[in-house]
Design a protein around this nucleic acid. Structure first.
Lengths: 201, 201
DNA sequence: GAGATATCTGTCACTCAGTGCCAATCGGCT
DNA sequence: AGCCGATTGGCACTGAGTGACAGATATCTC
């Protein structure tokens, strides 16, 4: 039981929560890092040991999802790429659908923050890299194709999240992601896995 | 002959050039906005009337390409979506291939600048919006699908630019974009236009 | 041309993000 | 207890980004 890592995780979560709270209540003004940090019970200097930029605090969730992704991929390590991606995005979607409010709030808030888009994009880019690596495992070494497919998959995730947040989570995220991945299934047809057509886990 | 607009455009270009020059020569250190501005012959305050953030100066080109895109689209206003997108990306690619060095330089430089990725992503997002709007003109109002397709198309452009910059522009950008769009043609098949299969310009 | 007007510009001053440095503290381990 | 590495807070500093004001410059009107 690594108390140290737990503590770090808890602190980051407190920072993220405080940030969303303050951004929300002060809109359209922005809280200072000083303000957010003291609300989370740490010093400004310490806050910057957890983040690289202020806006990052609005996207602690997508970073957390990496762990879910990796775990889900591992569960299907030998399945074709379509199944793996589908299983992973399902796993993440289910976690979000189980407790959508925090995610919805941070998305809602980030909409009104200039600079948030840039920060989100950085996280998104890390996701594209991760998905590309996964696709590459099944491909014949065509890096260009892998990258295009990864971007398309993340386009699906992005569009699904946007749609989902747009109507306040009314439609289960799982279904939206499903629908999106099905759109892409022609691209994966020759790879042996029909993305979006696998039986629900 | 709008002298005013011309002057603004020239100033922005000088700023962009100065930024790339200084970023390149000072790497891995970063020039200050003060430095860039004075190199371009304006004050710091004036520089910030042309940009919103320092890193933006590394991506003056992609913003400029919007005009080429719009003009190319207009030329094919009544063609199916596949042809329109293909014609537009060809037009842009040709402009780049005709004088690749400045673009290559700014890409090369931006690779080493943390924060540049975020700034590029913002521009990229504007591009996705623009492409989505274009796709929407031909679709049956499925905004979700439009967005996914737009993201996929921009994924192609992005991967093509990366590949192109990766080998210093050895492969004509036109060919890379072509190859990428062809990958996506199954997605557009039912829309009446085979992206990437239209006769060359 | 002269003068009214809108735009562009530089200077000054200010807030605040982000970082290096150092000393103090705390958790984990033997 | 005692050591070691990780975490923390305080301080000081650079530099991005912005508001306000005043002077210059271009465009328009007569």
């Amino acid at each position: 039981m690594p108390t140290r890592a737990e503590h770090r995780r808890a602190t980051l979560r407190r920072l993220g929560d405080a940030a969303v709270d303050l951004y929300e209540s002060m809109a359209p003004a922005e809280p200072t890092v000083d303000h957010i940090a003291s609300e989370a019970g740490v010093s400004r200097r310490t806050a910057f040991r957890y983040i690289e930029s202020k806006e990052e605090l609005l996207f602690t969730h997508p970073v957390l999802w990496f762990e879910i992704f990796d775990a889900a991929i591992a569960e299907r390590a030998d399945a074709p790429i379509g199944d793996r991606l589908r299983h992973a995005s399902d796993a993440i979607s289910r976690v979000i659908d189980a407790d959508p409010e925090p995610v919805l709030r941070s998305f809602r808030v980030s909409r009104g923050v200039p600079g948030a888009a840039a920060s989100y994009a950085v996280v998104n880019h890390r996701w594209i890299d991760r998905v590309e690596a996964e696709i590459a495992r099944d491909s014949e070494g065509d890096r260009f194709r892998d990258r295009v497919l990864a971007a398309a998959v993340m386009g699906v995730i992005d569009a699904a999240l946007e749609e989902w947040a747009g109507d306040e989570g009314a439609t289960p995220l799982v279904d939206l992601v499903d629908r999106g991945l099905r759109l892409l299934s022609p691209l994966f047809a020759d790879a042996g896995g029909q993305v979006g057509d696998a039986a629900r886990g």
